[in-house]
Design a protein around this nucleic acid. Structure first.
Lengths: 333, 333
DNA sequence: TTCTGAAACCGAATCGTTTCGGTTTTGCTG
DNA sequence: CAGCAAAACCGAAACGATTCGGTTTCAGAA
């Protein structure tokens, strides 16, 4: 049905090799160039990238595997990457693995069969075993948000321990001692790091760490709602909360709003990510923000460099810093 | 490098046709099945979907073209669709066209060259000209959020006029007469429909429509911030605001929060989409919500049906209703 | 044991490109 | 105008799967 290179060749009286050469920027005589362009126009020819991919072994497609698409940190990064990659002619296939190792492996295998040129992963499985196929095939791997020592790959991450430390420092400096931490599951790297930052800050200030004040949710809004409700019921002595990602921040705010607990009078709060959300609240929320734009552009940039030939240079580890956006949600005790 | 069907054939002493048949669910003798599976295991064979796609003319990939990835309505729909489609073995390639007709066309052409099996589009170009290639190739097209009369395709949409009508009814019933509308550009179908719903509701209630109270932003947070600031400065008589999508709702809330305008005492507000956001605010925001889950599953379902053979049945138009989630952000005058 | 129909197996052609090595054309130079 | 290098052109062989039509093998019946 659709026109092929052969049709263009017949129409113009040229050989297929010449057409192919033209399509790839090769030189053809002016007269022939016109003929070819006319034929392409008339026959509505469009290169078949599938065939091209089979021959060249490059699909100009990048796989992206993330734990949750319904997570604004992920979607912001994806948006940024997609933008950069598509400008360079690369498509991205995004797979959400629902924070499930098995689904993650399936997604990676799926992308391997599709012969994507490289893979970007915010990994659930910390061994990285699911990525071995790509490693063997010598296809570039870029990891977001953690290190995978067993795998030959680049990684882009933020200093999560420091991020939690910054939040805690603010709360402690304002005289808070009973600080609730709303964090993710221990087996998620970023959650663990943030928990460690929380503990380190307390210890440094000489405040004992009360494990009862640490709520392990699942990084979702719904989970945090339940977790915060329980924490408030069982520990009325808490004067401040630190929520260690955006979804849980929202969950905490929902509970506080629905219970009519005023901020910061009755409860001080520090959240995570999403500046617009923080600004839309009254009083404005103090948050720790991650540089999603920068992460996205670093990841895309590294991937492009690896794709365009830099196969041998050593794996890179890029660390980015979080920042504090100060609001009015912390009370001085 | 990677093992091919031929390698498996050699290893097992069988023919390539037999291996192919096995891979596609055909029958082989028990003894051979074991041999094949062993060989696949040992050689780490994975079907090359690119080659398969060339031969079968089906890539098991769906293209999705949307105006903005940074729009929660879009991302929610995408998440839902991706989930359903991938369970059936389809990958999705998502392209964000930044609400730009030219980029939209480029994205569609790009996906056509990649020979996606079908396309899902929330169109910017209302003529649908960019989709003609898919129409000619007889590949299924599913449209979200508007109708494209010139193109043979299915569409899934919500009743936007009614959505705006519902919001206005609440405000009018509560005695508001000077109601500001924060809406999108006139050339975006959903924005126009919502504007029409606004006007219709006012007229029906016998309240004159003051075009100065209608702010045309660009459907973004930033745009709404500027628009609402201007509106408040120039029209202090406004007692209520209706923001016609989620991003603009957030923009409006940012301005109100930063100016310390209390809700609903000084200003009544009705927003759009994102229930969690509405709940996290205090007082809880009244909003109009779109059934994103249902939209996603309808779109995916229709696409799957078209892909699995139903090429001839007439184009479908699915209408879904919005709902009101009542908060405490509207004052009775 | 032989026969028979069904099930299993097979090689070759094909999908639409790129690429290899070789041939023709072109535009100069002398 | 002959000679020549460079540029343009060319056909055929891949890439790795599926599929077509035809051949072999098998299990059970006679």
């Amino acid at each position: 049905m659709a026109a092929t290179i052969k049709d263009i060749a017949n129409r113009t009286g040229l050989g297929v090799a010449t057409i192919s050469s033209y399509l790839n920027g090769g030189n053809v005589r002016e007269k022939n160039r016109e003929k070819i362009e006319l034929a392409i126009e008339e026959l509505h020819f469009e290169v078949n990238e599938v065939a091209r991919g089979l021959k060249t072994n490059r699909t100009h497609t990048i796989g992206v595997v993330i734990p949750e698409l319904n997570n604004i940190f992920c979607t912001e990064i994806i948006t940024g990457m997609e933008d950069i990659l598509r400008k360079k002619g690369y498509a991205t296939i995004v797979c959400d693995c629902r924070t499930d190792k098995k689904l993650e492996r399936e997604a990676v295998d799926f992308l391997y069969r599709k012969r994507v040129d490289g893979i970007i992963n915010m990994p659930v499985d910390s061994t990285g075993a699911h990525l071995e196929k790509f490693e063997k095939a010598n296809k570039p791997i870029v990891i977001i948000d953690r290190k995978l020592p067993q795998i030959y790959c680049d990684s882009v991450l933020v200093d999560n321990r420091d991020a939690a430390g910054k939040a805690m420092e603010i709360l402690i400096k304002n005289g808070h001692k009973k600080i609730g931490l709303i964090t993710g599951p221990e087996d998620i790297y970023t959650a663990k790091e943030r928990s460690l930052g929380y503990e380190a800050a307390l210890s440094k200030a000489g405040i004992p760490v009360d494990p009862n004040l640490v709520v392990h949710c699942d990084y979702t809004i719904r989970g945090a709602v339940a977790g915060v409700e329980k924490l408030l019921d069982e520990h009325p002595e808490v004067t401040a909360l630190f929520a260690a990602n955006y979804e849980m921040t929202m969950g905490a705010m929902i509970v506080l709003s629905e219970r009519g607990i005023s901020i910061p009078q009755k409860m001080s709060v520090i959240g995570f990510d999403n500046q617009e959300f923080a600004r839309a609240l009254h009083p404005k929320l103090t948050i720790i923000t991650q540089p999603t734009e920068a992460i996205a552009s670093q990841v895309a940039q590294i991937m492009l460099e690896r794709l365009e030939g830099d196969k041998q240079s050593l794996p890179r580890e890029i660390y980015l810093k979080t920042e504090v956006m100060t609001g009015k949600s912390v009370k001085h005790m």
